[in-house]
Design a protein around this nucleic acid. Structure first.
Length: 581
RNA sequence: GGGCCUGUAGCUCAGUACGGUAGAGCGAUGGGCUCUUAACCCAUUGGCCAAGGGUUCAAAUCCCUUCAGGCCCGCCA
């Protein structure tokens, strides 16, 4: 009998730091013979603690944490939700002195069902549909297969996000004796399995003779396909088998080939609900998170647990269900080409901030992510970092324990001894736009100086300096790829149609032009501009916006003196004067 | 049709387990600052807590109904 880990959303929201766990009376789930417990976290801290309490309570000999993904195309950041939950479980276990194994199952043996929208593939690629992903060529030509290409793209990001699971490819796994045995078990207990399946799919009860379903699929030796992909998926059917002789025959639904051979030699696979259970049993999985789509009543997880128990004799893993991470309002769909990959995240934001986005939210909450909100996310991460180190006080003292836990789960390595000096993302996004005029070195130097000054340090450690540099480069990418127009500015080099008519403003612009010609230092120039504005009786805010309009066509802008000094002096003077002619 | 989840300020979300003055950040507005790298500080603004009903001295919170959105109920993963 599988244990169901039912997390009641209403009772487990992120910021109820003062959670309690209550072991409710066991209650029967309607329509299922399984027992549900409402598991609530006890005490303060992060929700991961409640999950780990449950894991420990199982008393498994070895703790095995699983995640899985089918590399049917680019793997998006939603898949990281599962990865990070596992990573967080592992860290929490570690902090309690417990070791665990973390496997990432790449379902490379699944057939390719469609070609994701927007993916450039060679001509005639449709011919590959129905083959296992592991034997479909890589359309980019850089990996041994389609499966490897997309799996690797995802996997190679993982160490940067602070995790390194063991990778298991199912096309390799299925050659192992343990999986062959699982297939033999399935064939032995086929009638029992059919009955379970009929129950979950709400099919009418039958005597079983008319039900010719069989979860064992064979890869055709002739055409290499495991299923026919037309309007629907038609798997290659098993015609007969003889377990005494370990023999099996099949018909290919694509090319019609009839093949036969030994179970130990043929390329066989189980269809997915049974496949999932078989893997749970083979690896003795303690816990596997799954998307809420699989976790609904009588869904794949429910059925999988029963199959695992009844057919394979293992009670199955603890379920942790999680909601989708959407791109704004849109669910990410690999086959529709709506994706945002971990690699894209790393281009525009520091890695720990994705952990923050995902682990900061209760698993059962939607996370709606939009790339233009990256600065908020990074700022919020910086804020919990300051709270962790006691530099800032959280709005409510109840938050403290949760936020400290959360911070520890987000940092890539271990928290440092003291708060690292960070360059604010918004600062980075601004100054980086001056790179064309200031040059990369000067931008970096200014940024290092600013980060040090903000944190009251005279110099930065190597780690801090590297982080400042990283933030500059991700902010630059964000500006060019995702920043909304109000975050961007451009030196307006084109013809100006601004004419300053107000007499006082004309005087102000003239005096600034003179100041720029005067070869002043940065601080002097900045101060003199203010003095000049005040002397003329213009509001300083208004005075500055006049200058920003002339230079970058915006009401506001980066600190003015450095901007003026970074630009070509003659050009600035000419430009300022052109507005008052 | 059956089931699960969601709906709180312009935006992102806390608060719902155990009913007790409607919260934060961002934004917007105003003010301040020998004065801004879209900064900072202060203040203000903002909500019929999706709608309706019920229970209660008291409901965002518990119960019922409705509406809107997401997802599952495929021999697919």
């Amino acid at each position: 009998m599988g244990w169901i880990f039912k997390r009641s959303l209403r009772r487990s929201r992120l910021s109820r730091w003062s959670w309690q766990r209550r072991r409710g009376a066991a209650k029967k789930c309607a329509g299922s013979s399984q027992v549900c417990f409402e598991v609530l976290a006890m005490g303060g801290g992060h929700w991961i603690r409640g999950i780990v309490d449950e894991i420990i309570k199982r008393g498994d000999e070895r703790i095995v944490i699983h995640t899985g993904k089918t590399p049917s195309g680019p793997i998006h950041i939603g898949a990281e939700r599962e990865q990070f939950i596992c990573s967080a479980i592992q860290r929490e276990l570690e902090s309690r002195g417990l070791e665990s194994t973390f496997n990432f199952i790449v379902d490379s043996y699944d057939p390719i069902k469609s070609i994701p929208a927007g993916l450039q593939v060679p001509k005639g690629f449709e011919e590959e549909l129905g083959k296992p992903l592991s034997s479909v060529p890589d359309p980019f030509g850089c990996h041994n297969s389609y499966a490897y290409h997309f799996a690797d793209e995802f996997i190679k990001c993982q160490p940067r996000f602070g995790l390194s699971p063991n990778i298991v490819y199912t096309h390799e796994l299925y050659t192992k004796p343990a999986m062959k045995d699982a297939i033999r078990t399935v064939l032995t207990k086929l009638d029992q399995l059919k009955a379970i399946r009929r129950k979950y799919l709400h099919l009418p009860e039958e005597d079983g003779t008319a039900d010719d379903w069989n979860p064992v699929m064979a890869v055709c030796e002739k055409c290499g396909k495991i299923a026919l992909m037309k309007n629907e998926v038609v798997p290659n059917k098993i015609d007969s088998w003889d377990l005494e002789k370990d023999a099996l025959s099949y018909t290919c639904s694509s090319c019609g080939h009839k093949g036969q051979g030994k179970i130990s030699d043929l390329s066989l696979k189980l269809s997915w609900r049974v496949d999932w259970s078989a893997k749970w049993a083979v690896f003795r999985v303690t816990c596997e998170p799954a998307g809420k789509d699989h976790c609904v009543k009588d869904g794949a997880y429910d059925m999988g647990l029963e199959v695992c128990q009844e057919i394979f004799g293992y009670r199955g893993p603890l379920r942790v269900s999680y909601e989708w991470l959407t791109l704004g309002e849109h669910a990410m769909k690999t086959h529709k080409g709506i994706t945002f990959t971990p690699a894209e995240w790393l281009k525009i934001a520091p890695p720990e901030t994705l952990r923050y986005l995902i682990l900061g939210a209760d698993p059962m909450r939607h996370i709606s992510f939009l790339p233009e909100r990256i600065p908020d996310i990074v700022d919020n991460f910086d804020r919990i970092e300051r709270i962790y180190y006691g530099i800032e006080v959280p709005p409510s003292c109840n938050d403290l324990e949760h936020l400290k836990d959360l911070y520890k789960l987000c940092v890539i390595d271990k928290p440092r001894e003291s708060a690292p000096a960070r360059l604010p993302y918004r600062f980075a996004a601004t100054i980086v736009q001056l790179e064309p005029v200031m040059g990369r070195d000067k931008v970096l130097a200014k940024s290092l100086e600013y980060a040090a000054r903000l944190h009251g340090k005279s110099s930065l450690s190597d780690y801090e300096a590297a982080d400042v540099s990283l933030r500059l480069s991700v902010a630059a990418n964000w500006i060019s790829l995702y920043a909304p127009s109000q975050a961007k500015f451009k030196i307006s080099t084109g013809e100006l149609d601004i004419r300053i008519t107000d007499e006082v403003e004309r005087k102000f612009v003239t005096s600034v032009a003179n100041l720029v010609e005067g070869n002043l230092s940065e601080t002097d120039l900045q101060n003199r501009i203010f003095e000049s504005a005040r002397a003329l009786g213009i509001e300083t805010g208004k005075a500055f916006s006049v200058l920003y309009r002339i230079l970058i066509g915006s009401e506001r802008g980066p600190r003015l003196a450095p901007l003026l000094l970074a630009l070509d002096r003659d050009w600035v003077v000419k430009r300022l004067k052109s507005t008052i002619e």
